[in-house]
């Protein structure tokens, strides 16, 4: 039997009972992919959480008091810890919807979009994302840019007196500026183009540079919005929070996808820590299971719960200790302090 005949034989054996994909399969795949990227970033930047560990280990999750007269940008997202959203966009073009917000140790971001059409058939007219990278981060390893190096772009007029540049972005217009602390902020207007500062296809046309600049001039990084979590738990003795992230995505049709995670341990490194993670929409029709060192609860209170324990501990026991305290469709019901006393 030659190769050709073998191929015929195999092709004759094509499955004829191919079941349809589960509803929401692709959407949950995209959500899982985005979460994976953020988890990777979190792991890669764990060392920066040492200062946070010291604070959180002693006093729990602390949110800085609001300082209304505070004009000088605080040092960084990192110095404030990963549990407070520092970005505060005071101006956005008309029609903006907050599509996504994330707070991580190495980058915080807010993403706004304008949609038209019906909820079932919405189309994105424009997108604007603002990001904040703490001092010491020289490469945008996550967020709207991928591997763009700060300080290597085309110099442009300063933003509120701070040195600014256009970063190469083949797919949009990206204005970045640097705070005295060394933190970098970025405004990215998504679209199509071909070189640094391209404006074609951004939804704003020739107005793109002025829109980006106005967003930049009105961006504050002294916000105090606490991160919220849909779960709570008692930490094991002598353990403290090492890192956390939270993500809420709103699709044009109003669908909310969420992801939140908390890593804790007795040392500073995320990779030596235990993690509780929730995501929504929840998986449907799957059993609770161990997979890849994690324990999965497909649906608890509308969330998929995933746990992993340092040192190959029992993820199921940890999952049993987690209390769901919010609803997946309304992040407003989540709590700012996931640690139970």
């Amino acid at each position: 039997m030659n190769d050709e005949k073998l191929r015929e034989l195999f092709l004759d054996a094509e499955p004829v009972d191919e079941p349809p994909l589960a509803p929401g399969y692709l959407e949950s795949t995209v959500t899982a992919a985005r979460q994976a990227r953020r988890r990777r970033t979190l792991r890669n930047t764990a060392v920066g959480a040492v200062a946070v560990v010291a604070v959180l280990g002693l006093v729990g999750l602390v949110v800085r008091p609001y300082l209304p007269d505070h004009r000088t940008p605080p040092a960084s997202a990192r110095s404030a810890g990963p549990l407070v959203q520092r970005l505060d966009a005071k101006w956005m073009p008309g029609g903006a919807n907050l599509h996504e917000q994330s707070v991580e140790d190495s980058v915080q971001a807010l993403r706004y979009e304008k949609w038209v059409g019906t909820p079932r058939d919405a189309r994105t007219i424009w997108s604007v994302e603002v990001s904040l990278y703490p001092p010491g981060v020289g490469t945008a390893a996550d967020g709207p840019l991928e591997d763009a190096e700060f300080g290597h772009g085309t110099k442009v007029d300063p933003v509120r007196g701070m040195p600014a540049e256009l970063l190469p972005d083949a797919n949009g217009y990206t204005l970045e500026w640097k705070y005295p602390s060394g933190a970098h902020a970025v405004v990215t207007i998504g679209g199509t183009g071909g070189k640094a500062g391209a404006t074609a296809g951004t939804g704003f046309g020739d107005r793109t540079p002025s829109v980006a600049r106005r967003v930049a001039e009105n961006l504050r990084i002294d916000g105090t919005t606490p991160m919220r979590f849909p779960f709570a738990l008692h930490l094991p003795a002598n353990q403290h929070v090492v890192a956390a992230d939270s993500l809420v995505m709103r699709a044009p049709n109003g669908t909310v996808s969420t992801h939140a995670s908390l890593s804790f341990g007795s040392g500073p490194r995320v990779k030596d820590s235990s993690t509780v993670m929730t995501s929504s929409p929840a998986e449907q029709g799957k059993p609770q299971r161990f997979a890849g060192g994690n324990y999965f609860v497909p649906n608890r209170g509308g969330f998929t719960l995933q746990t992993s324990v340092a040192g190959h501990g029992d993820g199921k026991k940890l999952a049993d200790r987690v209390r769901i305290v919010g609803t997946p469709t309304d992040p407003g019901t989540w709590r700012p302090d996931p640690i139970l006393n």
Binding site: P15, E18, V30, R37, N171, G190
Partner: peptide
């Protein structure tokens, strides 16, 4: 990932999920 890459990615997986699924089933 920027918005265009995101769209490209989503478009790609939508177009290729059936074929990859069959390979995975095999």
């Amino acid at each position: 990932m920027n918005p265009r890459q995101q769209r490209d990615y989503e478009s790609y997986i939508q177009g290729r999920v059936a074929a990859l699924r069959r390979t995975a089933y095999r």
